[in-house]
Design a binder for these strands. Structure first.
Lengths: 201, 201
DNA sequence: TCGGCATGTTTACAGTGGAAACATTATGGC
DNA sequence: GCCATAATGTTTCCACTGTAAACATGCCGA
């Protein structure tokens, strides 16, 4: 009973400590492993068993923390949205807000899709049909968008239309980049975004 | 030797005729069955075996016509792009070309995604990495886009940017609709597209 | 007529997601 | 401090998947 904290059985790499029956925080470890696997190696389906192996636990153990594979993927997707939101917020601040910030936010969106293709795809592909709609990790991102529209285009007549326009534009660019329909080219993205949202710095 | 045409063994529903060893045109039948399965019932992964069952043939028979499952999906995806192109061309003509036609083309794009979600997704998700790049079924659609930009916006300074902008915009709307991020609303789509491509009829 | 080639079938295998039953550990009420 | 009970992991099993290999069948040209 030396260390009594609640993560006794986790090794530094997230693997279960040898001989330990209980893991400590399997759920978190699984999510971490999933993200790692997603980050490196775009191809290759993310398998339940492979994930369990990474963490050093039996395959069915995961079912104590997720009702099924879908739920696990949902958790990963949510984390993806959270990261996207964070990156956008960061870009916004770094550019000092305003219309420049707005543009930076859009570019960050597309860059994220380019840098983390599998995660981006997963995050948006997940059908958010009958899940709890409120607590979605994408909230942050969307709120930032609305705020950005308001601040960057004060004179716009219909903010809803403008917001949707901006979102669709970057989302479309992101998907096209990600599906290799077009090449990733930050300058180009900047120009495209600038086309609608006028003479933005 | 009553009927000597090359589809002797196909029943009207695409199934193999009872007792016939050779199918007649399995490849086409499989693709048709795949499309049917894709059209009805968005959910549920499209399985090789299920498809073979539909056509009334053993699972491994498909390997005489497609190197692997991926290739089969590629064929379906290509058909999807072809249909999209056809619908856009039709919309363009119906609207009488020009800027009105351009807008109609964009709306048709999003509508297609809404009407055939699985097919649309499949069509664009397929990594066209090392496949034959030239003979893609999406050529039609893209050429139409470029032509449309030229005709609808004669005074535009950078046609490349404008074309990409238009494509990304509708593609983004399509993906957002398809992933249930936003609801399908033709009027809204019209407004959004109109925002950039000015006072279009 | 016959021989080869295209096309199907059967069988087999490794891998998958998931259900059940069982084992082990942590915890809260006495 | 003791112990029932809930939480968490493990084993075993099942149906299903994509695909390779070997075999069967039918068509078409020499």
């Amino acid at each position: 009973m030396a260390d009594k904290d609640n993560s006794v059985n986790i090794n530094s790499d997230g693997t279960k400590a040898a001989g330990a029956y209980h893991h400590g925080d399997l759920r978190a470890a699984v999510i971490a492993a999933g993200l790692k696997r997603i980050e490196e190696g775009e191809g290759g389906e993310l398998g339940l068993r492979a994930l369990a192996r990474d963490v050093g636990v039996s395959a069915t153990a995961l079912y104590r923390h997720f009702p099924d594979k879908e739920a696990l993927l949902d958790a990963l997707a949510d984390e993806g949205l959270r990261r996207l939101g964070a990156l956008q917020a960061q870009a916004w601040l770094k550019a000092g807000g305003g219309s420049a910030g707005f543009k930076a936010t859009g570019i960050a969106y597309v860059r994220f899709a380019h840098d983390e293709p599998a995660l981006f795809r997963l995050s948006f592909t997940r059908q958010m049909s009958e899940r709890k709609e409120g607590e979605d990790g994408g909230e942050v991102a969307y709120n930032l968008l609305r705020a950005g529209v308001g601040e960057a285009l004060p004179g716009v007549k219909d903010p809803d239309v403008a917001a949707l326009h901006a979102w669709a534009l970057v989302h479309g660019l992101a998907m096209l980049v990600l599906d290799r329909r077009i090449a990733w080219d930050e300058a180009m993205v900047g120009k495209v975004v600038g086309l609608t949202f006028g003479g933005i710095a």
